[in-house]
Structures are given as structure tokens and as C-alpha cells.
Amino acid sequence: MPQRVPDLGVGVGLRVPHYRRVVDERPKVDWFECISENFMVDGGKPLHFLDAVRETYPVILHGVSMNLGGADPLDPAHLAKLKALVRRVEPAWASDHLCWSAGGGHHLHDLLPLPMTLEVARHVARRVRQVEDTLEVPFAIENVSSYMTFHDDELSEWEFVSEVVEAADCGLLLDVNNVFVSAFNHGFDARAYLDGVPHERVFQMHLAGHTDAGTHLLDTHDHPVRDEVWELYRHACRRVGRRATSIERDDHIPELEELLAEAEIVRRLRDEEAPR
């Protein structure tokens, strides 16, 4: 039976250029998502603003480099720092990516796709359980966008994702833009993906912009959410239901108003497609 987490409503990724305004102006948004690694520090501005934001808003911790799909052992120092951060923030859940990001002792700081096999799914699930046991908060893994697949693949991506979250008994952070990007890059049906994952395990959804490079789409997080992705989000809301959803922007970060405007679109679509 999947863990239950609250529907936190509509969130925005907390980014450095917006720290001061978020704290001073308390904009109308339900929660903020923070990149965990940016706050695994000893002190200074990051933790000061994190604490200040936390006084007003729920905060969800979203990691980018746990290397859940790696073959190297999980980094105990990383886990310890994340656990300390979890204790400080008390998030309703924490998350990281279904990918590998380090190999042979070297970090690549990227979200690299895994061979989609049952053996790898079970390997990742064991590691996710280790993280869950350590953190003692509900934990979700995010589907990544990708630009390559492997000869070894034996499952569709949504089958692979489902195998991992079921075996790990964890949540799914369903990134709708990533589904769209990978569907284009690998020629599968994005709606079949959304229909195929276990909806009851979806803790949260992500929306972001991407770049059309002609032969492929790049998951750049540097544009507004595209119309096709909004349409896909409508479908996700209808199939999955009402779930906490956040807007991500990591490059060419605009004024806060632009992100808040996108958050309002999320709010409207949630209400239209998955009313209370």
C-alpha cells in the first residue's frame, strides 16, 4: 500500500534570484521546492533564506545527485547531510532522480538514463529503500528525460519506472515535461506513459520548459512550459488526479511574476481537470 502524502497544491522551485522577494513579499504560492544539495552547507545565505522561507511555506527537498541508479555504493556523507537537512526542514516528502550520476568514483552531475531491465530496476529499488530507511520521511523518485537508450533495454520506460517504485514501495515524482521530451526523443506515446505508471504512487508532478533542437528535444528548464506540455499535464491530471505540482526553472531565470503566472495556470488546470 503506497504511503499517503498531502496534496500541497501549487509550488515553485526556489531559486537564488528570488530569495529576498519570497521572504519579503510572501507571494501567493502554496509551497516551494528546494534543490537539496544547494542547502547541504554549513551556514550563510542558503540556510538563512531556507529557514526564512520555511517559516511561511511548506518546503519539499528535491535532490539531484544521490546516484540512485549508480553501481558505486551510496555516499554515506551525502546521506548524512541530507538527513540533517530533512530534520531541519521537515518536508512532507523528499525526492531524487531515477538515474545514475556517478560511476567509477567520479561524479558527472548529470541525470543519466539507466538500462531498463528488471535486474537494474531491482538494484535501484534496493538503494531507494536504503535512502527511505535512512531519511525516515516519504521518498519519491523522478522520471528523467533522456537522449539515449540502451541495447540492453527490455522494458518500456513506464514499465521500468513502475517496477522500481513498486519494488521500492516509494512515491513517484512524475515530471510531465520529461515524459514529453523522452517521448519525442525515443518515439513513444507520452499518454501511454502517463496511463502506464501507478497513479496511486504519484506524490508530485513537475512542469518545465524545454528546447527544440530539431533532431531532438533538450530538457533545458530555461523556457516557459510549452503548450504541448500543458496539454499533457491536463491528461495527467485527469488520469492521476489532483497532485502537488511545481514549476521548475533553472536557467534564464525570469522575474518571479513569470513563474507565479505559470503557477496560476497549474492551479486552473488542476481545478478544471481534477476538481476537488
Binding site: 553501481a71 556517478a102 560511476g103 567509477g104 543519466l112 537494474v120
Partner: peptide
């Protein structure tokens, strides 16, 4: 997971 480790070492 020897095969995965080898793959990731080579790709890295």
C-alpha cells in the same frame, strides 16, 4: 551489478 558497474565506468 558487475555489468552495470562496468557500463557506468566506461560511460563515465
Amino acid at each position: 551489478m558487475k555489468r552495470l558497474a562496468e557500463l557506468q565506468r566506461e560511460l563515465s
